[in-house]
């Protein structure tokens, strides 16, 4: 166990934010889920007692008759904003006084940095380069993620949970977002803490060996079935990718019809919403972890090889 190596990675000034994220993300997840659980309990209680549901103010927050429904922004909101600004400023000052921004040697095109890493928030994309060709990892995936995020509110036909935390009423949507969010964070963590010189996998605490060579025998999927001719490879790959879409689509459909509540939600979903959701969910949320698993566990490089592009 090389604690020094681990410390060097963790304490690199530019990695401080991602180390902070290791604490911030669980904390805020807890904070959100705590309120979701409270709301879910209230929902259950009100579902059981329709009489109470008629009179209840429907929040877990305190409420007494006679309280004003609204508050003046000045000073009740402005003072919070002002305090937040002061606190953030103090944090920034302390952070900037105690920790210096990194500055390496002057840029030198003749001396390649190894490992040469992007800033931490782009390490997810850089790590994707291991699993996909640059045109997918660098261009297609980011575009799909961006457009997919924008499509998200339009394909989510669930009317519940608009403006309050809940898990019970939004299991599917939160699950889907959770997969994407966790994959993204996981890729960044791999890129930050695990990838060393030559972008080789070093477990946390393993010494970075600049002379390390890995003899991975990367194979394409068609090698497993012994296909050698190019036309056969093209057809085989297309069939595999098509099959993947069908199977993943069936899996998602199964989840969307899991119980009566989910089926009711599905009934509200238009055909276009359904197809759009399936496309983005399969192409990003499912394809990404599947390809990562194929590569890391089975050393499979491509599943579809053509003369023009490889997937």
């Amino acid at each position: 166990m090389d604690w020094h190596q681990l410390w060097k990675i963790t304490a690199a000034p530019d990695n401080i934010p991602i180390v902070a994220m290791l604490f911030l993300v669980p904390f805020f997840t807890w904070l959100g889920l705590k309120q979701a659980r409270e709301n879910d309990r209230l929902i259950e209680q009100l579902e059981r007692d329709p009489q109470l549901a008629k009179t209840h103010h429907r929040k877990t927050l305190p409420w007494r008759p006679g309280w004003a429904r609204e508050l003046h922004v000045w000073p009740f909101l402005i003072r919070i904003e002002f305090l937040a600004a002061v606190i953030v400023t103090v944090i920034l000052f302390v952070w900037s006084i105690t920790l210096d921004a990194p500055l390496e040697e002057p840029a030198n095109p003749n001396l390649t940095m190894n490992p040469s890493k992007a800033p931490w928030y782009f390490l997810g994309l850089q790590e994707m380069l291991v699993y996909f060709d640059p045109w997918i990892a660098g261009v297609v995936m980011p575009s799909l993620i961006m457009v997919g995020l924008m499509v998200f509110p339009y394909v989510d036909s669930n009317p519940f949970g608009n403006g309050y935390y809940t898990i019970k009423q939004r299991r599917f949507a939160l699950g889907m977002f959770g997969i994407g969010w966790l994959t993204w964070i996981a890729l960044i963590i791999i890129g930050t803490f695990i990838r060393g010189p030559g972008w080789i996998w070093f477990w946390p605490g393993q010494t970075w060996d600049h002379n390390a060579v890995v003899f991975d025998k990367n194979r394409d999927l068609h090698d497993f079935v012994g296909i050698t001719s190019m036309p056969a490879k093209i057809i085989f790959g297309a069939i595999v990718v098509g099959l993947f879409y069908v199977l993943a689509g069936l899996l998602l459909h199964k989840l969307m019809t899991w119980n009566g509540f989910e089926r009711k939600l599905l009934a509200r979903t238009s055909l276009l919403q359904y197809v759009m959701f399936q496309f983005f969910a399969i192409s990003v949320l499912i394809a990404l972890p599947v390809k990562i698993a194929l590569r890391l566990a089975l050393n499979i490089k491509y599943v579809w090889v053509t003369p023009w592009f490889n997937v």
Binding site: P106, A107, P109, T112, S116, L125, G138, V139, V140
Partner: peptide, 27 residues
């Protein structure tokens, strides 16, 4: 203009080379 930024941007913009149809090494 140090090594950190230079190589990060080199890696980042090299991906643009692979843009489908608009990159010299893309499909």
């Amino acid at each position: 203009d140090d090594q950190l930024g230079f190589w990060a941007v080199t890696v980042g913009t090299n991906m643009a080379r692979a843009t489908p149809m608009f990159g010299s090494e893309g499909p």
